[in-house]
């Protein structure tokens, strides 16, 4: 368990230093771990499991948008578990249900992570549809079509800098919508 957190911490350090491949590896490793944990929590609370992927994606967004609040000298586990716990509580609370989850529950996420790389989040799609057209188009080109920032810039007739800004703003407003609405 500690080894895994060490590996994640080292990937996050590389990611924060600008290594996009390491960062993507980290997120891909975190997704199944989060998914397994969220499913367990939802089942334990008697909540519908189909919301699992919504929560996983919300958590990944929060990890991404708040990654600068992790200090590279701090242990990675407590930071990750706190973010994940917060997002799960937010999600359930948004629906008017009160819950209490001890932080320890998140420390034992996994070990048997199931892999569902094709999983979809209907909620994210719904909010995505309400983003400004340019942000939505850039998000789709980069995330869904897998284009590089440079390719997306050529495709949309924008500078790479403007694409970066639109991409970042798109994720930030997506997270804000997921947090506040409904």
């Amino acid at each position: 368990m500690i080894d895994r957190e060490e590996a994640w911490a080292s990937l996050m350090r590389s990611g924060l230093a600008g290594d996009q491949a390491a960062y993507q590896t980290l997120l891909r490793a975190l997704a199944p771990a989060l998914r397994a944990s969220v499913r367990r929590r939802l089942a334990g609370m008697g909540q519908p499991l189909e919301e699992c992927e919504d929560i996983v994606q919300e958590t990944l967004l929060a990890i991404h948008l708040k990654r600068h609040t992790w200090r590279t000298s701090d242990p990675f586990g407590p930071w990750l578990f706190t973010v994940a716990r917060n997002k799960l509580i937010d999600h359930v609370r948004k629906r008017g249900r009160r819950i209490e989850i001890p932080i320890e529950d998140f420390a034992d996420i996994l070990p048997a992570a199931e892999e569902r790389p094709g999983a979809d989040s209907a909620e994210v799609d719904r909010h995505l549809a309400q983003l400004p057209a340019k942000q939505r188009a850039i998000l789709k080109t980069v995330a869904v079509d897998g284009a590089s920032v440079g390719d997306a810039a050529r495709q949309h007739g924008m500078t790479p800098g403007a694409v970066r800004v639109a991409l970042h703003r798109g994720f930030a407003s997506l997270a804000a919508r997921l947090r506040t609405e409904e």
């Binding site: 996009q20 993507q24 967004l61 991404h64 979809d120 989040s121 995330a143 869904v144 970066r164 970042h168």
Partner: peptide, 21 residues
């Protein structure tokens, strides 16, 4: 959006915020 796609998009977003400190 599929989680895999979201991750690809997040990894491409290299704009970092200022630390709270």
């Amino acid at each position: 959006m599929r989680t895999d796609d979201l991750i690809r998009g997040l990894a491409a977003d290299d704009k970092r915020e200022t630390s709270p400190g």
